[in-house]
């Protein structure tokens, strides 16, 4: 392969970028979540990033055995979500969360059907999505715009969970942890290197989260 001056210059830029990234993305956050009693369905831990342009990604959520295939999906405001129906019964996916200005209804979806919705509601919200026909079905769309996130699915009978967020920027100042219907946990990362915070729902303690910055 012939190396031109331009390609050498480009490689130099690439090396420089990687080395700067390595310097910035040096931190890992390790966490432990412990529930006092029965755990909820799902939660998300993330590092909010203020100066990042929204991505236009697409998320696909299927419906099988009268359940959504995921309990939570992350999508930026402006992105698209495709709902599929791989069940052999009809479904009707909808959301109606006035607080987050999130409202959509895909109408009846026959088996094999597919519908797309645009995420046109506010950033930094968690919106419940359900099925009008099967009210026990639920999934959540988390509209955060950060690559540093971890969805944690909880299980009946298991009270302790561990997670890590890798390669987060050194200058990250906030760690957030959210569970639908629970009080949000926000930790100031600029003060110390380990934290233990109560997880509460309507002010009542339901568990604890411990995080360590490494």
């Amino acid at each position: 392969m012939k190396l031109t001056l331009a390609s050498c210059f480009n490689r130099l830029i690439l090396v420089a970028t990687i080395s700067v990234s390595a310097q910035i993305n040096a931190t890992t956050i390790k966490g432990t979540i412990t529930f006092v009693k029965k755990p909820p369905l799902v939660g998300i831990a993330y590092i909010p990033i203020a100066d990042i342009s929204p991505t236009q990604e697409t998320v696909v959520i299927d419906q099988i055995d009268k359940q959504f295939t995921t309990n939570m999906a992350v999508i930026s405001s402006g992105g698209e979500v495709t709902f599929k129906n791989s069940d052999n019964v009809e479904h009707n996916v909808f959301a109606n969360d006035a607080k987050q200005s999130a409202k959509f209804d895909v109408g009846l979806m026959q088996p094999g059907g597919e519908k797309k919705i645009k995420v046109d509601w506010q950033q930094n919200s968690i919106v419940r999505v359900g099925c009008k026909i099967h009210p026990k079905m639920r999934t959540y769309l988390s509209t955060i715009n950060t690559p540093f996130h971890r969805i944690i699915e909880f299980e009946k009978g298991q009270q302790q969970y561990q997670f890590s967020l890798n390669q987060i920027p050194d200058n990250a100042d906030i760690f957030s942890f959210k569970i639908p219907k629970y009080d949000a946990v926000n930790i100031d990362l600029l003060t110390g290197s380990s934290w233990e915070v109560d997880i509460t729902k309507n002010g009542k303690i339901r568990g604890h989260i411990t995080i360590i910055k490494e």
């Binding site: 069940d87 019964v89 729902k201 009542k204 339901r206």
Partner: peptide, 20 residues
């Protein structure tokens, strides 16, 4: 395959608003 098992309801599965 799509059916939830016809089991006995578990008291642990009750979602009390106050958590208990």
């Amino acid at each position: 395959s799509m059916a939830t098992p016809l089991s006995t309801p578990s008291l642990d599965d009750i979602e009390y608003p106050e958590g208990e």
